[in-house]
């Protein structure tokens, strides 16, 4: 049982991490590298009074160590999430939930909403060079936002019985709470890179994360191997 739990989580983390890494190298890392051109001052937004800034990534460069570590950390990150998801699936299965790969994909979407989308609504994905509030304050808010969002979505998804609607409402409240409290912000703008680049980076990194989470949920559910016909 424990072996299956860990094996499933490792496969799910590996699959999601590799899918994320491939998509990141096509869609996200080039933007990140382009952002670094502005971060380091090699490129300047609105140079010499010009109303235009040159667009286009400087290319990935063949930095095997840097990019290899990025792939490795993608696998580590998604394995961490997959361990937590497989454990949650085991708890849900004990309470009578049937976990099929199809439902696993929905688990993945819900996990993406709780762990990535909701925190990002307060602290958007940051292009290098973005100046934010103090790091520790942001990390605390970020972890709290994840915890509140996971609890909120779990209440909405799993509330049963005559008071399920009240629990679901409480879940909505938990989802909103970190946002009503507000993420740590600074009182002025320091942006040095083009807003177009920052916006594309934020939406693309979230989109890639969503795909990886769906893959992770489906694979984790597949390896539970308890998908019998519903009922």
């Amino acid at each position: 049982m424990t072996y299956r739990l860990f094996a499933g989580a490792l496969y799910a983390g590996l699959a999601a991490g590799l899918v994320a890494a491939v998509l990141q190298f096509v869609f996200v890392i080039p933007l990140l590298v382009e952002g670094e051109l502005f971060e380091t001052g090699m490129r300047v937004h609105f140079q010499d009074g010009s109303v235009q800034s040159p667009a286009g990534s400087g290319g990935l460069e063949f930095d095997l160590v840097r990019h290899g570590l990025t792939v490795g950390m993608a696998i580590v990150s998604y394995t961490a999430f997959a361990l937590l998801m497989s454990a949650s699936m085991a708890i849900a299965a004990r309470r009578g939930e049937v976990i099929t790969p199809r439902r696993g994909a929905v688990w993945g979407l819900a996990g993406f909403a709780a762990i990535a989308l909701s925190p990002a609504a307060g602290l958007p994905p940051e292009l290098p060079g973005t100046i934010g509030a103090e790091l520790v304050a942001r990390q605390v808010w970020w972890v709290a936002a994840m915890l509140f969002s996971v609890a909120g979505i779990a209440l909405i998804a799993f509330a049963r019985g005559p008071h399920a609607w009240a629990l679901a409402l409480a879940g909505l409240g938990l989802l909103l709470l970190p946002h009503l409290y507000g993420a740590p912000m600074i009182d002025r703008y320091y942006g040095i890179s083009p807003p177009e680049l920052s916006a594309l980076f934020a939406t693309r990194s979230l989109a890639v994360t969503a795909v990886a989470w769906v893959v992770m949920g489906a694979v984790a559910a597949h390896f539970r191997a308890d998908h019998r016909p519903a009922g």
Binding site: Q24, H67, A116, P125, L127, R138, S205, L206
Partner: peptide, 14 residues
């Protein structure tokens, strides 16, 4: 250092 790019790409505060 190792996690830098991945943290940005996955939207962790870095």
């Amino acid at each position: 250092g190792a996690a830098h790019d991945q943290r940005h790409a996955i939207s962790f505060p870095c």
